[in-house]
Design a protein around this nucleic acid. Structure first.
Lengths: 230, 230
DNA sequence: GGGAAAACCTACCACATGGTTGGTTTTGCG
DNA sequence: CGCAAAACCAACCATGTGGTAGGTTTTCCC
């Protein structure tokens, strides 16, 4: 199924176009309200068909969620520069800042990972294994970047790249929750730039990524971002 | 209703004891699985009565959630030293570190605030207003503490107490999500201490709070903590 | 153009849910 | 001890849910 959701070189079939609409609708509604509060009938109505029609394309609700998350990951892989964290640690971290900056302009999609990741702490949640793995990869990528940076530029006493990595992931996730609750009160970009400043990295001059296309495109929470290069 | 859930000086009535059991069961199940995934029948079964019996004590599921959160807040107010962030900023922040340290030993309850706060980003969620206000108070308290500290000891150029406050809240929330997903991989206490170290505060020597009583007592995520003094 | 497959629909199923109603049992106070 | 109130229950209601079955409509390719 996963290769079928990738747009083939030719014009997409009716089924491919419908699956894309379903994934967009699901991403939007899961981001807004979480997995449990959204029904297949809700998603189907948003996508312009019935829930039975939706179930022709996806085996079930759990599978749909996993497909939405995988789809998001592939889109993020396309957006990010393919920078290796070990070889180009500072550039890799600049990419993180750019994604955070962009995400501030896309309130709808930011919630998808932030919201589903806390739901998925429940071992019975369909995305539990996905998020355990995802955070492992994210922390590993950032740990590599911070380790390489420390080796290159020296590090203060007691510097722990793994601790810094998990803290940076926490900052991005935690800021998203606060931002979703009170967007006017939170400056995610400034906070992330200030965090990097405290560990000796000046990212104030990092330009933001171009805006995404308008409409209900599924898009990424910032925690997606650094993982794609792993 | 709220003054009735506070234990009176005399021995508690049958109803008071039942409400306490219901609140404990609800806190535990909401922490484990979130508001939407848990039913009144689930909570009632955990508390040893039927869902109709539960509804004799609480007007509805939404009210029960709010009561669980308020009950937690009152318990936290009792646990924390009543330190004013403006007059005693460093002591106030030490209290934050102690609560974080204690919460690492209580995996069940940590999830209540972390989990419900991201659910509550949905404006239709019953706890939305509660969390908007809660984060405002939390950030305000920490901003006061960081402002007072900067005035007393000086601050580095570009220091922004409000930004530091929202970042600290983000670190604590974000670490909880990662910790719930992979407790062995995350050291919340070390990460929070390292965060403070980067802004010039040495809290490595802060002793943890004593453990909570065993059993299914409702208890707090660390983000509860600093707010009680406001 | 025709036919097979894809894509969709309506109707249904079994189950779950939050809440209500009317009744029974337990508690506690005079 | 008796009685009113509190605390609880079984049964029910209306609605919603994920998924299935069988059928219809649309698409697309030979």
């Amino acid at each position: 199924m996963s290769e079928q959701t990738r747009m083939p070189a030719g014009r997409p079939s009716k089924g491919e176009r419908t699956r894309a609409r379903i994934l967009a609708a699901a991403a939007e509604l899961f981001a807004a309200s979480g997995f449990h509060a959204v029904s297949l009938r809700d998603i189907a109505a948003h996508a312009g068909l019935t829930h039975a029609g939706l179930l022709h394309h996806f085996p079930g609700k759990d599978s749909l969620l996993i497909e939405v998350l995988d789809h998001r990951d592939r889109e993020d892989a396309e957006v990010l520069s393919q920078v290796a964290p070990r070889e180009h640690p500072e550039e890799f971290l600049r990419g993180v800042v750019r994604v955070v900056h962009r995400n501030m302009r896309t309130p709808g999609p930011v919630g998808l990972y932030a919201r589903i990741s806390t739901e998925a702490a429940d071992p019975d949640h369909p995305a539990h294994a996905y998020f355990v793995r995802r955070y492992e990869l994210l922390r590993a990528g950032l740990t590599e970047a911070f380790t390489a940076l420390a080796a290159r530029t020296g590090a203060p006493p007691g510097h722990d790249p793994a601790l810094t990595a998990q803290t940076l992931v926490a900052v991005m996730d935690g800021l998203q929750t606060q931002w979703l609750l009170a967007p006017a009160a939170i400056d995610m970009h400034a906070a992330v730039v200030a965090f990097f400043a405290r560990i000796g990295l000046d990212f104030r001059d990092v330009p933001p990524l171009p805006d995404r296309r308008s409409g209900s495109e599924p898009s990424s929470a910032s925690t997606t971002s650094a993982e794609a290069d792993t």
